[in-house]
């Protein structure tokens, strides 16, 4: 373990996993309780278009802007659009997510193929966690603190919005504004985590730890406490395991998360049987 810590890219990877694992799980508690698991998946896949637009701009203008800024801008725009469509149309959320998801991936692929940058696809879909720099880690830390802070500051409003939306409105909570804020937080988180797991697997980091924790505990505060612990342990042990087994890191992290979920499953079944 101490040997691994001496290797800079491993150190950065472990620190990155230790930062992003818990905060994704914390955010994921609200994502899963709000029924937005597929929403986060759609945003992750929209990153394909964000990256493609970034490279397109580099091709057609002398400006050098990080493609990640485009990923965030496109994810945020798509998140806002989907949140607006949820509010204003009678279409079911899964329908809105499905056409936003497929439409954005199609657009991204068309741009990437026009640019001839097919090799980008692999990096976007599966991530490259070992490419984390110290600067990346500071950005991840800043985002983790911001996301956690905003969630804690709005904890009561978010919980009320999930459990009793009418009561939330009676208490003066502006649910529509809160929904947009939440969608933006999710877009920011997706952008930063893209490097770690890639678009294909990213939502696992957000969805599986709270799902596993929910199998083990029966109330909201314990869920808020346990999910980040699961997220932390699964992300860090996934990195270590992938190094030991020489397996791809992103998929290994996901498989560790799924294993934790399967371990917690008997707890749930036992509790149900006891009632």
């Amino acid at each position: 373990m101490s040997d691994l810590w001496q290797i800079e890219f491993m150190r950065n990877t472990l620190v990155s996993a230790a930062i992003l694992g818990p905060v994704c799980a914390f955010l994921g508690v609200f994502v899963t309780l709000r029924g937005m698991a597929f929403f986060s998946d759609a945003l992750a896949h929209a990153a394909v278009t964000g990256v493609a637009l970034g490279y397109l701009l580099q091709e057609i203008s002398p400006l050098t802007v990080s493609p990640m800024l485009f990923v965030f801008a496109f994810s945020a725009a798509l998140a806002t659009l989907m949140a607006w469509l949820f509010e204003k149309t009678k279409l079911r959320p899964d329908t809105i997510i499905a056409f936003s998801f497929t439409g954005s991936v199609a657009l991204g692929y068309v741009i990437i193929s026009a640019l001839g940058k097919y090799r980008l696809i692999d990096a976007i879909l599966f991530g490259s966690i070992y490419a984390n720099s110290t600067r990346d880690i500071f950005i991840q830390l800043a985002l983790a603190v911001t996301v956690s802070g905003v969630l804690l500051w709005n904890l009561k409003a978010l919980a009320l919005g999930i459990l009793q939306p009418d009561l939330a409105r009676v208490q003066g909570v502006r649910l529509e504004r809160l929904n947009y804020l939440f969608a933006l937080l999710l877009a920011a988180m997706v952008t930063i985590c893209l490097k770690m797991l890639g678009a294909l697997l990213l939502s696992a980091l957000i969805v599986i730890p709270p799902a596993a924790a929910r199998l083990a505990v029966g109330n909201f505060k314990r869920l808020l406490a346990l999910a980040p612990v699961v997220g932390l342990l699964a992300a860090v042990s996934g990195v270590l395991l992938s190094f030991t087994l020489n397996s791809p890191t992103g998929p290994t992290i996901v498989l560790v998360n799924v294993s934790v979920l399967l371990v917690f499953l008997p707890l749930r079944l036992a509790r149900r049987g006891a009632r």
Binding site: A159, Q164, R214, N219, F220, K221
Partner: peptide, 13 residues
């Protein structure tokens, strides 16, 4: 089916 306890539901009020 949401994972809230009675006390959590009450104190939200």
């Amino acid at each position: 089916n949401l994972p809230f306890s009675v006390m959590e539901l009450l104190t939200l009020n």
